[in-house]
Simulated assay, not measured.
Amino acid sequence: MLIQLIIGALMIGSVYGLVGLGYGLIYKASGLMSLAQGDMLMIGAFLGMTFYKYLGLPFIVSLLLTMFIMFMLGMFIERILVTKLLAKGAQTVYVILCTISISMILQNGAMLTWGSNVMQFPSVFKTNTVNIFGYEIIPENLLALGVGIFCMLALHLFMTKSKFGTSMRAAAQDELAASALGINVPATKGAAWGIASMLAGGIGVVIGPIFGVYTSMGAMIGQKAFAGAVVGGYGNMYGAIIGGMFFGFVETFVSAYLTSSYKDFISFGILIIVMIFMPTGLFREEVME
């Protein structure tokens, strides 16, 4: 049972970590906050299910196509909505309200398009379980964990090794200096929003076969991912991963050994304690002005 619990905790922790990475990317790139990340996950799950279940596309094609669409959606939100608001002198709080409105639009749009009932995402594998060290593990859990780890490593390499990733980090540190060096700062901001949306949408496709697909599926995941990002140090990429994994282990083992009724109470109680005694998170991330 312990192996199964650890794999489950790693799986859900990687989900929280990836969505939390999106929060941190947006904050680092633009100094803004998006509260629509959970619903980006939900839209990604619905799109992936549509491509895979109704259009009959291979799962990997459905996943990649969904991630591309979600990247473009994130870019659209930043370039068309957020930038226009800021250009008109809107305060940061209005951008946050805008993302809350986007969240509601995505939820209601999904309800109108796919309905309000829980929909079944077909299984990706022909077998229901695989045997690991004598334990029966659901293969979709391993897939979600594998995709989560791959995306984290790929994003790390992109941000540290690629020219555009380096430009994104430079623009996040000092926009004026980055512009003077010829870096297209608006493009880096749009890309950050696009990548955040792409990560959330992609992991939504992967967890669809595990939890089913429904309009409110991203709400609690988005909140836990946000909490993980705060615990790790809001804006710190590695902090979001550690924080997400932390919450994944807490809620999994609390549910297994105590009670599932209070797992959210304990998780968010820990968040409050961290905010009081460690307001900059585990990685002591500095607050951006």
Rank of each mutant, 00 (worst) to 15 (best):
L181Y: 10
G204A: 01
L145G: 00
Y262H: 06
Y257I: 00
I266P: 04
M168S: 00
A191P: 04
M217I: 05
A178K: 12
K163M: 14
G248T: 06
I195L: 13
D264E: 13
S162F: 15
W193M: 08
S179F: 07
G182P: 04
F158Q: 05
G208P: 03
S261D: 08
F211L: 14
F150H: 07
S197Q: 07
I138N: 11
T252Y: 07
T259C: 13
E140P: 11
I207W: 02
N236H: 09
F150Q: 01
Y262T: 01
G201D: 02
S162L: 15
Y214P: 08
V206K: 11
G269D: 07
G201N: 01
M159N: 06
A196V: 00
V185Y: 00
V254R: 04
I242W: 06
G233C: 01
G244L: 09
K189M: 07
L155A: 02
A227S: 14
G165C: 02
M198H: 05
F164N: 13
T166C: 12
G165W: 05
G235H: 03
V185D: 02
A172D: 01
I266G: 04
A225R: 08
V250G: 04
V231F: 05
Y262M: 11
E136A: 14
E175R: 08
M245W: 15
G228F: 02
